[in-house]
Simulated scan of single mutants.
Amino acid sequence: MIVFPNAKINLGLNIVEKRPDGYHNIESCFYPVGWSDVLEVIPSDTLKFTTSGIPIPGSKEGNLCLKAFELISKDFHLSPVRVHLHKVIPIGAGLGGGSSDGAWMIKVLNSLFDLGLSVDGMHYYAQKLGADCPFFIENKPVMTRGIGNVFEPVQCSLKGLYMLLIYPDIAISTAEAYQGVQPKTPEHPLLSLLEGERQIWKDKVHNQFETHLFKKYPLLPQIKNTLYEHGAIYASMTGSGSCVYGIFEKETSIDWDPAYKVFAERIKY
C-alpha cells in the first residue's frame, strides 16, 4: 500500500503561556497542504524500514513510522511489514512532515490489517506519537490549543486560492525556536480573525515565532516581503520552522535562489 503523507501550515500562531511541565500552550490553526512524502507499507517476513530522499537525522528506531507500528502491534500483534519512506517534506521547516508520516502509518496499518479502528481510535494512538500527530488523521483545518493537541472546528477555507511555500534550507529545531519566546495573551482572538475577512490577516494574524527568529535569520523576512511584493494576500512563517508561505488570488511565479525548495499548488482543501 502506498500513501502520500502531506504537510500542514499554521495560520497564525500565538504562544499563550508557559506551562508548569515546561511546555507552552499555543493558539493556532492547522491547515493541510499538498507537499507530501511517499510511504509504502507491504507485508513481509521480517520488519524492515528503509528511507530515501532527504536524509532523516537520528536513528531509524526513533522514526515515528516504526514507533507507530510498535505501538499498535502491542495491542494487535501485527505481522511484520516492510516500510519504505521517501522523504520529500523538508525537515525543520515547520511543516509537520514527521508527525504526518507517523499518523499516516497508523491509517495504513488500520487499513492493511483491517483493524477496524475508528477516527477516535486512531487519534488515541496518534496522540502517543506527538502532539500534532492526531491532526493528520482527519486532515482538515482545525483550531488547535493546549500544546497543539486540543482541536476545535474552524470555518476557514482557502480552497481555490494559490499557495507558494519557500524553504530556504535553514533547519530550525523546536527547542531553538522556543528559546526566544515571550508568551503573551493575544490582542485579538485568532478564531474570530480567521473566520473574518482575509484582508485583515496581514496586519492582525501573526506567527509569534517571527519576532525573534526573523532577527536571527534575516533571510526569512526577506522572503516574506518578496511574497507580499508579488501580491500575496497573506504571508507568514509556518510553525516553529523556517518555511515561509504566501497565499495568492491567482497563480504566481517568482524567481527564487536555486538552493531553495519551492512548492506551489492550487489549494484543494
Score class of each variant (00 low, 15 high):
E27M: 13
S28N: 12
C29P: 05
P32F: 03
S36P: 02
D37K: 06
V38F: 05
E40I: 13
P43M: 10
P43W: 10
T46Q: 13
L47D: 05
K48V: 14
F49D: 08
T50P: 04
T50A: 12
P57A: 14
G58M: 12
G58Y: 13
G62M: 07
L66T: 09
L66E: 10
L66Y: 12
A68R: 03
F69Q: 09
F69S: 09
L71T: 08
L71S: 08
S73R: 10
D75W: 00
D75G: 00
F76I: 11
H77T: 13
H77Q: 15
P80A: 14
R82A: 15
V83M: 15
V88Y: 12
I89T: 05
P90C: 07
P90K: 01
I91T: 11
G92Q: 07
G92R: 05
L95F: 09
G98Y: 08
G98R: 05
S100V: 01
A103W: 01
W104N: 13
M105L: 12
I106E: 03
K107E: 11
V108A: 05
S111W: 11
S111V: 13
D114M: 12
L115F: 07
L115Q: 04
G116Q: 12
L117V: 03
S118N: 07
S118K: 02
A126V: 01
A126F: 03
Q127S: 13
G130L: 09
C133H: 01
P134E: 03
F135Q: 02
F135S: 05
I137Q: 05
E138H: 06
